[in-house]
């Protein structure tokens, strides 16, 4: 397993390198943001340990740049900033985990292992399908750059469909995942909301598959 440590504290970076090499990882170190981004782009790493406060380019911007290039390498952020919003921002721009300095080295290792287990599937922070984009953190939906205002139920429905692009999703599954388990929601409530959604995002984007359910299409035929 090959790791990249991007950290401007030279002694911390060196200690991490020593320790992780001792665990059997191959470790590269970058001391600045641009150097880290460059290495992450061109090397093939299994995970990146990334400081937030970096000279040249902040950790947030490094992650965002990587994700924008469809680089899904798992990223663990390290920061001495312990504000709730600092952590939330880090995760929302596309990091996979966040540790506050000073951290326990044992926990760092455990979290790294967990990240490596999960691998690097496509997991964008912002979902897209054709010209349609949905940002769960900001709760914003845009189509060709134009914002579409959705109710929270419509938003949840669209988010679920956008996570399964091109697949047929049954009414029962939608009912299970988008609506609360309780109450007497009749299956035709799904039809009603799909109707609302079609009016807002475009009729042709939500296909009805007779007898099976609905399908979100990225590029309407």
């Amino acid at each position: 397993m090959r790791l990249l440590v991007v950290e401007d504290e030279e002694r911390l970076a060196a200690a991490l390198q020593r320790g992780l090499q001792g665990e059997g990882f191959a470790v590269d170190v970058a001391l600045t943001g641009p150097a880290g981004l460059d290495l992450a782009r061109h090397g093939s790493y299994d995970a990146v340990i990334l400081d937030v406060m970096l000279p040249g380019l902040s950790g947030y911007r490094v992650v965002r740049a990587l994700r924008a290039e469809s680089n899904w390498v798992p990223v663990l952020m390290l920061s001495a900033k312990d504000g709730e919003y600092d952590q939330a921002d880090g995760l929302d721009v596309g990091a996979d985990d966040y540790l506050t300095k000073p951290f326990s080295y044992v926990v760092l290792l455990a979290r790294l292992r967990a990240l490596l287990r999960r691998g690097a599937p496509r997991r964008p922070a912002v979902l897209t399908a054709g010209d349609l984009s949905l940002d769960p953190a900001r709760r914003r939906v845009t189509r060709a750059g134009v914002e579409i205002v959705l109710t929270s139920r419509e938003f949840a429905l669209l988010e679920y469909l956008m996570r399964r692009p091109g697949e047929v999703v049954s009414k029962i599954e939608l009912l299970d995942h988008v609506w609360d388990a309780a109450v007497d929601t009749a299956p035709n409530v799904v039809e009603v909301y799909v109707g609302y959604l079609r009016r807002k995002v475009g009729r042709e984007r939500l296909e009805t598959v007779r007898g099976a359910g609905y399908r979100l299409v990225a590029e309407p035929a």
Partner: peptide
């Protein structure tokens, strides 16, 4: 205060990680 805490945490994080790594590597 936030800046001061941040500045104090960085060297502290270095110390802790250096010690933990050293302890874990043992003889090496």
């Amino acid at each position: 205060v936030a800046d001061a805490a941040h500045e104090l945490r960085s060297p502290l994080a270095n110390l802790r990680t250096e010690l933990e790594v050293a302890q874990r590597l043992g003889d090496r």
